[in-house]
Amino acid sequence: MTAGANALTAVPETGEDILDVSFLADEHARSGISNPVLGMILFIASEVMFFAGLFAAYFNIRSAAPVWPPTGNIEFDLHPHLAIAGFLTIMLVTSSVTCQLGLWAIRRGDRTGLVRAFTITIVLGVLFLAGQLYDYSTLGFGINDGPFGSTFYTLTGFHGAHVFAGLLMLGVILYRGTAGQFSARHHDAVEAASLYWHFVDVVWICLFSLLYILG
């Protein structure tokens, strides 16, 4: 009889509903990074490749275009929107900071700290989305206005969708946090959600530099 076999005797009979059965595996596998966090890192890797596909399309189309942004009767210049986009960037970066503060709080076992920080994070995220929608409404072109329009709205739109998904995740964490489900030892979901939020932030910084600053 080995250690693994001993661990297995603890299997609950109706355990089918248990989401995380990793506790059944041996200690040595549990050392290091936890399953949800590893899963999230891999998920983020796939998301990176998803955006890589969209970015590749952007660069490909841009490099083939004779002038960029295209000229004509539609105004494609994004520089006038630099101020609002910059403001949005500051909000999203700040939200990443507050998110990290929340994570540090729960690592210390500070539940109210987590709740407070994540509330601010969510508010900033919602404001970001609202600001982005406002920015859209002031742009003079649509998704069907040539390659500039399609790449711009696809890139920023899918980023926005990811912010939205991140907000849902943070919302669940906040809900579970107020219910006191996390502790200094047990907060993998918080780690995973914060990783995702940072990722969303990084994508935005790339988009901001590329679309608004470089133009």
Binding site: F50, F51, A52, G53, L54, A57, I61, G142, I143, N144, G146, P147, G149, S150, T151, T154, F158
Partner: peptide, 17 residues
């Protein structure tokens, strides 16, 4: 997935990928 989404946008929302 990203390619399919671009194709979908081209087909349905007047995209120009």
């Amino acid at each position: 997935t990203s390619a399919l989404i671009m194709l979908f946008i081209d087909r349905n929302y007047g995209g120009s990928f």
